[in-house]
């Protein structure tokens, strides 16, 4: 029976950790999505300087790991006068990192839409932005969604690293249980399953979006 009590005790820890992980994942995904479209469109800009700025952002964040970026955000940014809470540092590092990978998804998705669609838009006298918004992006998003689904899972996995700057998400809570009770197998198995559940929900959500967005194309 004592085992059961202990398990319920872990349960409470793990549940609060799961909520924090979900929260961190949602905010990081939102920031990553925003940055992915900003940088992805910038990578295709006609202006050399805009392309260069976007390229530097992408290469910088892809060139180092989320782990290093998180420690830089948490420990180095305060030295230049930017103090962030652990959660803010986590969202900033994970979101900017995800955005860098996502920008390549956006760029490739837009380029996957045929040149014929751009030509039809010109023949119908649409502006560049009208063509992008009404013709190119709706088709590109369908191409991007599977990659965005993978990216969302990578972002969720990256949130575990935030435990190392004291964000009390799943991994942090498992470590707490371990240090307080000496139990190892149960807390870590529990959070592995929880991560899998969150990943499955993310995958299902993306599938749903894929179905919604694919009307008209691919026989739908």
């Amino acid at each position: 029976m004592q085992n059961l009590d202990a398990t319920i005790g872990y349960g409470r820890f793990i549940l609060s950790g799961a909520l924090a992980t979900v929260e961190l994942t949602i905010f990081s995904c939102a920031l990553a999505l925003l940055m992915a479209f900003l940088a992805g469109l910038a990578l295709l800009s006609r202006s050399y300087s805009i392309r260069a700025v976007a390229r530097i952002y992408v290469e910088f964040f892809r060139g180092t790991s989320i782990f290093v970026q998180l420690f830089a955000a948490y420990f180095v940014l305060p030295l230049v006068g930017i103090s962030l809470t652990p959660v803010q540092a986590g969202v900033l590092a994970i979101g900017l990192n995800g955005g860098a990978y996502g920008s390549e998804v956006v760029r490739a998705g837009i380029q996957a839409v045929g040149r014929d669609q751009t030509e039809a838009s010109i023949a119908l006298n649409l502006t560049r932005w009208q063509a992008m918004w009404w013709v190119i992006l709706p088709q590109a998003v369908v191409v991007m969604l599977p990659s965005f689904g993978n990216l969302a899972i990578e972002i969720m996995k990256a949130t575990a690293v935030a435990s190392l700057v004291t964000v009390s998400e799943l991994t942090f809570q498992a470590q707490m249980v371990r240090s307080q009770t000496g139990e190892t197998a149960i807390p870590f198995l529990l959070i592995l399953v929880t991560y899998l559940v969150i990943a499955s929900v993310l995958t299902a959500l993306v599938r749903l979006l894929e179905r919604r967005f694919s009307r008209g194309t691919a026989g739908a």
Binding site: I153, K157, A160, V161, S163, T171, A185, F188, L192
Partner: peptide, 15 residues
């Protein structure tokens, strides 16, 4: 593939 590397490392190292 769908669970964090960090947790897998903890698993190997602590469990």
């Amino acid at each position: 593939r769908r669970t964090p590397l960090l947790v897998q490392l903890y698993f190997l190292f602590y469990v």
